[in-house]
Nucleic acid binder design. Sequence first.
DNA 1: TATAAAACCTATATAAAAGATAGGGTTATT
DNA 2: AATAACCCTATCTTTTATATAGGTTTTATA
Lengths: 138, 138
Amino acid sequence: MLSKKTKYAFHALTYLGKHRDQKTVLIQDISEEYGISHKFLENILLELRKAGILGSKKGKGGGYYLIKDPNDVPLSKVIRLLEGPIALLPCVSLNYYEPCAECKDETKCGLNKVMIQVRDEMLKVLENKTLADILDKE
Amino acid sequence: MLSKKTKYAFHALTYLGKHRDQKTVLIQDISEEYGISHKFLENILLELRKAGILGSKKGKGGGYYLIKDPNDVPLSKVIRLLEGPIALLPCVSLNYYEPCAECKDETKCGLNKVMIQVRDEMLKVLENKTLADILDKE
DNA sequence: TATAAAACCTATATAAAAGATAGGGTTATT
DNA sequence: AATAACCCTATCTTTTATATAGGTTTTATA
């Protein structure tokens, strides 16, 4: 399951996507809309900005805004940023690979092979669907 | 990511599947093979037995054994038993559904719709692949 | 130029979950 | 009768997730 952090990130991005007409959106607007703690959300938006998905403007009249085209924000990118690995096991993760302690030889591990299939099916959706797809459906 | 508990369950099932020729397998044999704490593993095997996947025999010469045909143990069953939901969000879980607190109307939630797709792709593998597929590849 | 409003940053506290351990009880085999 | 194994419940420890705190910096505008 995705953490709340990741889920909140998607909600925030959705909100920002819906309000692209206005220059900036306040953290508070988003936190009130979804009932998310202001400070918790602040950390999340900060990460999204550092990753180049959002821009921000300080001071009065400031706030956050989408810096990327929603079509260029695959869901996989958001998940990897906030959550970490998408794969169900560390030994089949493309971006956060770690060997399994229990496993002597990964190439002979049947579990490993099946989990690679699961990962690939997940990625088929998560790499190709973007923020734009979420916005389309709202 | 799957918890260690779930991963250990798969390892144990694999081990038991490989040793179907012998009547029973000791907890200790499995825990030593994979370096898993004996007591922790004990709890896992107990759950698998209660779920009707394993059988056990008490007393000297006892132990655990597979009670089901490996073809009849889909990976999804093991995950749901030890881990809980397979879906990435509670609001798209088939077996552990819960509404999202942030969401006013689920039917209008774009995130919900995309996550249903992810869930279905995961299930396509996890429902159809079984313990037998893992054993085949070892 | 003073003030208010907003993001920025780092650290810490709290809560929840995962992982592991303990210890005795029960049962079946030799 | 002894032993070896499962059975069960409870608790401890560690880790991770979630949330909060408090100040700093930047910007608009009155």
